[in-house]
Write a protein that binds this DNA or RNA. Structure first.
Lengths: 199, 199, 199, 199
DNA sequence: AATGAATGAGCATTCATTCAT
DNA sequence: GATGAATGAATGCTCATTCAT
C-alpha cells in the first residue's frame, strides 16, 4: 500500500477539527486528538508531521479560498448604484459559499487560530468589508456630495456585520437557511444605507 | 498585619487582571501573575485558593453587575414610542456605564473567559439586547400591526450590535468618546428601525 | 532565601558532569541527571533553564580558559632555540594547568560535546599544537635551512600528541604525576625533533 | 528467492555502514537505514534481529580480524635488531592491510561504537602496540642493559601513535598514500627510539 | 517475504499546586 | 505570614520494535 490508510487519515482530520474547534490551536492536545481518532499519539505522526502540519492541513484549504476571494474583489468601475447593489450581493454570496464548503474549518480559523499564522484572518475579512463600504461611500460622495463618515465608524460597523454573519454561519445547519439569513441580515443593515449614514 | 495584606491582595488583583487581559484564563500563568505582583507564587495561594478563585475574584463583581442589570430590565409598560426611545438609550447607557466602571474586567470576561463558567457571558448580554428589541417590536406589532421578524434574526442582529459596541469599548480610551461612538453606532443601526425591519 | 539551595545546585552540577561524561551531551538525559541528583526532573528547571544551560554551565568555564589560553599564545620573536624550548614547556604546562583545574569538565568538552558549540574544541587545541610546531620549524628553516615537512604530517603528529596528553590526563589522578608524565611524553616526542624530522 | 534476499541483505549492510559511519551506533536510526536501503523498516527485521544484530553483522568481521591479528602476534625469538625492525614494519603493515580491507567498518568500530561491546576496541589495538614496544624494549634491556621505561609511558605513547595512524587512515583515500604516510609517521616516532627513550 | 501501520516507552520542558521551614 | 523548593502530570515529539495482512 503506497498511501496511508485514508480512513485513519480522515478520522485524525475529523478528530483534529473537533479538538481545534473546542480548544483552539494552542490548547488542543495531540494526545487528545489521537484518543478521539482512536489511535495512539505516536501513530499520528505517521500521518502528519507535527501539530502545525495537522493544523494547516485542516485549515489551509479554507484559508486559501478566503484569501483568494478577498484578493480578487474588484474596485467599483462606474459611479452607479447598480454596481453597489450587485457588489454587496456578490461579495456576500461569495463569502457564504466559501463558508458552506468549509464550515468547521473556517470557524477554527476565525475562533481558534491564535498562535498560528492565521490569527489575523478575521481582521482581514473585516477589512474587506471595510473597503467595500468605503468604496460605496466614495462613489456616493462623488455623485451625491455625501460626506464621508469617520473611518473608525466604518471599521466598527464592518466588524459588527462580520460578527453577525459568523453567528448565522454557526447557528444554522441548512445551507439554504444560512444563505437566506445572511441575505436578510445584510439587507437590513444596508437598507437605505447612505441615507441613514449621512444623518 | 491587615494593611499589608490588603496591599498585596490588591497587587495580585491588578497583576491577575493584566495577565488575564493579555492571555485569557487558560493561558495565564500563576507564576507570571506572582512575578507581576512582586510576590512569590506560593504566597499567592494564601490570598486566593487557586487559579479559579483568583479569576472569579477579579471578574465576578463586573459579571454580577452586568447580570443584575440584565435581570432588572423592565418590560415596556405603555404602548408608546417614548418608552422605546428612552429604553434603548437607557439600556445602552446602562451597559456603557457598567463597562466604564470595570473596563479591563469586562474585557477579560468577554474575550478571555474560555475555560471558565463565564465563557457564555457575551451570549447573556446579547440575549439582553435581543429581549429589548423583541419588546419594542411586540409593542409595535400591537399598536401598528407590524409583523414580527424571525427571532433568530433578532438574535443575530443583537450579536452584531454587541460586537460593534465591544469594539468601540476596546478602541477608545476616553470615556466621553466611548459614549459618543456608542450612541452614533446604536443610532445608525436603529434609525428607522421598525420601518426597515418590516420590509 | 534569595539563592537556590547551593547544595542542590551543586549536586545537579555533579550529576550532570557524570552523566555528560558517560553519555555525551546528546545522549544524556535530564530525567537521569535529576535521578542522579536525587531530585525530580521538574525541579531541575528551577536551577537551570534547560539542557543547554546546564551543559554550558558545566563546561564553559573550562572552555573559556582553554580558548583564552590558545588566543594568548605569542608567535616566536627571535630565531633561537631558547624560545623553542621555553615555549614548548610553557604551552604544555599551561594546558596541563588548565586541565588540572577542570578535569572532568574538559573531558566532557573533548569527548562528549557533539551537538554543542564546543564540538570543535579538540580540533582547536590540535591546531594550537600544529601552529606551535610549524612556528618552530619555520624558525629552523630560516636559521638552518631545514626543509619544511608536509603540513599533513604536522597535523597528524599534533593530533597524536594531543591524544597522548589526553590519555595521560584521563589516566592519572594525582596532579604531580600528570605533570610529570606529560613532560616526559612531550620530551620524548620532541627530543632531537628537528634532526629526526629532516630525515 | 535466495538471490533477492542476498541483494537486500547487502543493501541493508551498506546502508547501515553508511549510517553508522555518519552517526555512530547510538544515534543511528533504523528507519533511516531502511530508507537508505530502499526497503521498509519492518522488513529489515527479517534480515537482522535488531539494531545490535545489524551492528555486529556489519562490524564483527573487521573486529574479529583485528583481534585475531592481535592475538597472533608472536613474541620476539632472537635478540637481534633485525627482529625489531621487521616486527614493527610487519605489524604496522598488518594493521594497515586489515584496515584497507575494511575501511569503513573499522572506522565505525573506532569512532562509532559507543554503546556496544566494541567500544573498547581502540584500547585493544593500543594494547597491541604497547606489547610490541614492550617486547622490543625487553629485548634491548637484555642485550644492552637498557632500563625499562614506565609501562604507563608506553601505553600513552601507543595510544598517541594509534591516534595518528587512525587520522591518516581517515584522511587519505588512496591505499598507497595511506601506507606511505603511516610509514613516515611510524618512522618519525620510532627513529632512534631506544636511544631517545633511555634519556 | 514484504509491507506499512501501530505501539509504547522515552525525550525535554512547563506549570498549577503543595508544603516544610 | 511568607518563602522558595518540590512535585507530578501534562505537553509535543521520536524511535526501536512488533504485527496483521
Amino acid at each position: 500500500m503506497q498511501v496511508l490508510k485514508d480512513e485513519i487519515r480522515e478520522s485524525i482530520y475529523q478528530a483534529a477539527l473537533t479538538e481545534f474547534s473546542e480548544k483552539g490551536y494552542e490548547k488542543a492536545s495531540m494526545r487528545n486528538i489521537a484518543k478521539r481518532a482512536g489511535i495512539t499519539a505516536g501513530n499520528m505522526y505517521r500521518y502528519f508531521k507535527n501539530k502545525d502540519d495537522l493544523f494547516y492541513t485542516v485549515t489551509s484549504p479554507a484559508y486559501d479560498e478566503i484569501v483568494r476571494f478577498i484578493v480578487e474583489q474588484e474596485l467599483p468601475r462606474g459611479n452607479d448604484r447598480e454596481w453597489e447593489n450587485m457588489n454587496v450581493d456578490k461579495q456576500t454570496d461569495g463569502i457564504v459559499s466559501i463558508y458552506l464548503e468549509h464550515k468547521k474549518e473556517l470557524l477554527v480559523i476565525i475562533d481558534g487560530s491564535k498562535g498560528t499564522r492565521y490569527e489575523r484572518a478575521k481582521d482581514d475579512i473585516i477589512r474587506l468589508v471595510e473597503n467595500m463600504i468605503t468604496n460605496i461611500l466614495k462613489l456616493r460622495s462623488e455623485t451625491d456630495g455625501l460626506a464621508m463618515p469617520d473611518p473608525h465608524f466604518i471599521h466598527v460597523l464592518s466588524a459588527s456585520v462580520i460578527e453577525g454573519v459568523i453567528l448565522i454561519l454557526k447557528q444554522y445547519k441548512e445551507d439554504e437557511k444560512v444563505r437566506e439569513m445572511v441575505r436578510q441580515f445584510i439587507g437590513f443593515i444596508f437598507k437605505d444605507f447612505t441615507e441613514r449614514i449621512s444623518g
